[in-house]
């Protein structure tokens, strides 16, 4: 049942030009950044050769690419998630789901899964860029993998926030801008000054950076999973409250 909803969500995305536009735009921007990172690396290469423990191409190019991808996707995810529930509420199709033999959890998980499958496609396309370097050099496979896992977890968190905010309103635009605001706020939380305060700990960015350095800390993975679960539970509660509210 979850897959039925996820499949329709995915199909709906690809039936509208939005999905294609997002894939294209993200790809163009990241390709440009990727090239500029490579160029930067080539400029630095003579100096790096002189260092004893110089950072490798994986860290300097791939790591930076994934860092930029996180920022670009932070801008893009709200556009993908904004319509999830709000559009259905606006066009009154939500009653179709409510009167079908489905639980609220199934609706939310179906929607969530649909977007995640789309983002997996996007992630695959992004991963092709660093992998193309394999033709000319060798990469630190573990570091690339950890970067991809980190990016996937980060996206999972983005979508969970977006889905929750989409359940709050019936205006996709409002959902998009609010999601963007919340995500940016979570991103910037570590700017609050001191290193070890609670706010900095909650920052999405702080848990993402270790992945880019090739450090897979299960605490960071758990942070993202808890983040996702928390927002999904909130979404289910909110959808349930729809029937109680007026």
């Amino acid at each position: 049942m979850i897959f039925t909803i996820a499949w329709r969500e995915l199909k709906g995305l690809f039936l509208s030009p939005l999905a294609w536009a997002i894939l294209a735009v993200v790809q163009v921007i990241l390709a440009f950044l990727f090239l500029s990172h490579i160029e930067g690396y080539l400029l630095l290469q003579p100096q790096l050769a002189a260092l004893r423990h110089a950072p490798g191409v994986t860290e300097l190019v791939v790591g930076r690419l994934f860092a930029s991808a996180a920022i670009v996707l932070l801008l893009v995810t709200p556009l993908l998630t904004m319509r999830l529930i709000s559009e259905e509420r606006r066009s009154r199709t939500l009653s179709l789901l409510f009167s079908a033999p489905l639980s609220m959890t199934e609706i939310i998980l179906g929607k969530y899964l649909g977007i995640m499958v789309f983002l997996t496609v996007l992630l695959f396309l992004i991963a092709l860029m660093p992998l193309s370097l394999l033709m000319v050099t060798s990469l630190d496979g573990g570091m690339v993998a950890s970067g991809l896992v980190g990016l996937a977890l980060l996206l999972a968190a983005f979508v969970a926030v977006g889905l929750f905010i989409s359940t709050l309103t019936q205006y996709p635009g409002v959902a998009a801008i609010s999601t963007f605001g919340v995500l940016l706020l979570f991103w910037l939380l570590d700017w609050s000054g001191k290193e070890d305060n609670l706010l900095a700990y909650l920052s999405l960015l702080n848990h993402y950076e270790p992945f880019l350095r090739g450090v897979f800390d299960s605490a960071n993975a758990v942070y993202y999973l808890l983040f996702v679960v928390a927002f999904l539970v909130l979404s289910v509660r909110r959808l349930d409250a729809d029937r109680l509210g007026g």
Binding site: R8, K11, G12, L15, S91, R92, T93, L94, S95
Partner: peptide, 11 residues
């Protein structure tokens, strides 16, 4: 069948 038909117009 709700008052407003719950249709996905893109399908």
């Amino acid at each position: 069948l709700p008052e407003q038909p719950p249709l996905y117009r893109e399908l």
